[in-house]
Design a protein around this nucleic acid. Sequence first.
DNA 1: CTAGAACACAGTTCTAGAACAGTGGAGGTG
DNA 2: CACCTCCACTGTTCTAGAACTGTGTTCTAG
Lengths: 235, 235
Amino acid sequence: MKIPAYRRIATDLADRIRAGEYRPGDALPAQRELSAGYGVTLMTLRQALQELRDEGLIVQQAGRGTFVAPVQAAYRVDTLRSFVEDLREQGHRVATEVVAVALDGGLRLERVRLLGDRPVIHQTSSVPAPWAAAIADEDFRRVSLYAALAEAGVTIVRASERIVPGLLTEPVAGHLRRPAGEAVFVSERTTYGMDEQVVVVDRAVIVGDLIEIRAERAATRLSLQWGTVRDRPFG
Amino acid sequence: MKIPAYRRIATDLADRIRAGEYRPGDALPAQRELSAGYGVTLMTLRQALQELRDEGLIVQQAGRGTFVAPVQAAYRVDTLRSFVEDLREQGHRVATEVVAVALDGGLRLERVRLLGDRPVIHQTSSVPAPWAAAIADEDFRRVSLYAALAEAGVTIVRASERIVPGLLTEPVAGHLRRPAGEAVFVSERTTYGMDEQVVVVDRAVIVGDLIEIRAERAATRLSLQWGTVRDRPFG
DNA sequence: CTAGAACACAGTTCTAGAACAGTGGAGGTG
DNA sequence: CACCTCCACTGTTCTAGAACTGTGTTCTAG
């Protein structure tokens, strides 16, 4: 019995939540009920719940209950959002042009993002087969890919992103109306749903003249966002 | 008695730490000792300590004790650290070459960072006058700039970083032993001490072939780190 | 029909112990 | 002298309760 009980309980509950046994917004059984169910003290159970709370999986409200955290809140809590949401948050008008949509098993979506009237991001998104069909007939000029996925019942859990600098090359340079050879960011983002399933793979080319990455680091807080070069907070 | 005991204790201990009664690296009294001192149970005291641990103020080690987090540790807690610390954490050997040191009021330090034997980062750091004198005679091949500042009694509170893609140009290209025109990251980082005073201004050029930015986004956690291109965790 | 009191139920805080699990030093043994 | 065991010390996990506070509903008096 090497791993502590509270950790086993936390893992078990997390699995149940991720498996969909308790859905976002649902109330979990009461603490006393759960503690009896697992055969541990209230104290021990609360320790398990704290793990889940630290991970952002549940929300506790005194007098009301323990609820599975709604996924929507995750976006807004500064972490699981995309370029576009970052920029909109900062008051920029971001428009989307759909360059191409292809459906061969999975869905391949090629979009250009415009900041005001200047194209700044060329983005190719791939959605694997299971979910592609459910969202294939959306109008992606108006509906965000993530909104469409959410409507189709897909829950986003986490995302992993990799960014390297690059040079603008021809197929994309035309879409961004910029000369080839310019400095750009190249971002590869993989978005995961429940059970570590890949929901979206994004590849984005981002014009370096107009967009930058900002990181704020403090003792315990870290924030990361995409911003426009013009309104830099320092310098 | 509206505020709970554990919170009062946490506040009291935090105040003592910030007041310097316990200095970074010092061990706090044992948990049993503290609980007796405050007249509460071990459980209650541990709840107070957890608050401090969540804030990154203390570090606990089973069998050894509870220690006031060294300012250095703040870096390691995934948030206030630099390229080099990020890379070292991942097990890479990072060496430093000092290209130039100038002292005209402030301190201007020009360094090249080597990953193994390949130069990957060209970094120019400026330290304003007040602190420049105190660290001017350090050997920056062996001592990190932040370590020197820490020794001089400078506390780092936060850092703000801006990253854009760029093209490698000639003065720096030579130092990095790479052809001009390659894709690079350009990072401008400002580090602040107490009272929002600027402690260091860094400008770094980072070879894009070898170094990348990784961001992991989950419901509540966000991590950002520099990594080498070779050991990518996905793809 | 409404205002407020009473109640049921939720999470929260706390006690007083007990036993477990790492860490490092003091002694003993080869 | 080197190694190893034991022990004292640390933080960690857990029990079995008790009392508290916050929230919403239900019942009752006006």
